[in-house]
């Protein structure tokens, strides 16, 4: 009963917030609704007993990715009205994407309810989510896992290479030099004659 109520509450929140991501006039509000969607999805994961994925979703997407989204969107200087003008012309493309996703979801649901797929709930209640994940990731899917890590590394290096530029005339500070400074180097006592100045 409680679980059913919670499920419908979270599911409704997720869908309504996802709709508002598109419908909101202000892009910052859109990002806020996106965060709410992530949150509701995390709640649904917890209901399914996948608490590890749920917290990972909150940590990675809400705690890091959405913060960067918010950063970019807050600092953009865009005319919201102008941005919304082509809204209706994109509608067919959006509908096609929505239709494809709907079809996929129906197929997944059909496969699940026909009993052809594995269960999403861990079979052994004594083993935690985390241990099962570790076992599967580092044994059955070790190759794929390492490959994913490699792809991320390449992406990271690529991002750094793209944004790294040599800037001339920028004065930088060497922290080691600063720490190694002594009082003798930094302070000079000068006895100035009255009315003379340092000249």
């Amino acid at each position: 009963m409680l679980i059913a109520i919670t499920f419908y509450l979270l599911a409704f929140t997720a869908i309504a917030a996802a709709f508002m991501v598109v419908a909101a006039r202000n892009p910052v509000h859109s990002v806020m609704f996106l965060i709410l969607t992530f949150f509701a999805a995390a709640g649904l994961f917890i209901l399914m007993g996948a608490e590890f994925i749920a917290l990972l979703l909150v940590m990675v997407y809400v705690g890091a990715v959405a913060v960067l989204f918010l950063f970019v969107v807050m600092m953009l200087d865009v005319d919201f009205v102008e941005l919304k003008q082509g809204f209706l012309s994109y509608l067919p493309a959006g509908l096609i994407v929505a239709f494809i996703i709907l079809a996929e979801m129906i197929m997944v649901g059909a496969a699940y309810f026909s009993g052809a797929s594995k269960t999403v709930v861990p079979t052994d209640p004594e083993t935690s989510n985390l241990e099962r994940f570790g076992e599967v990731l580092y044994t059955d899917y070790a190759g794929a896992f390492e490959a994913a890590g490699l792809v991320l590394l390449v992406a990271m290096i690529g991002a750094i290479v793209l944004t790294l530029r040599e800037r001339k005339g920028v004065r930088t500070q060497n922290a080691m030099d600063q720490i190694a400074r002594t009082r003798e180097e930094g302070v000079e006592l000068v006895d100035v004659e009255p009315g003379q100045g340092l000249g």
Partner: peptide, 15 residues
């Protein structure tokens, strides 16, 4: 059983 992750997740939301 994943209390550490929970605390990390919520402290990252404090921002």
């Amino acid at each position: 059983n994943i209390g550490v992750l929970y605390v990390l997740a919520l402290s990252s939301l404090g921002v």
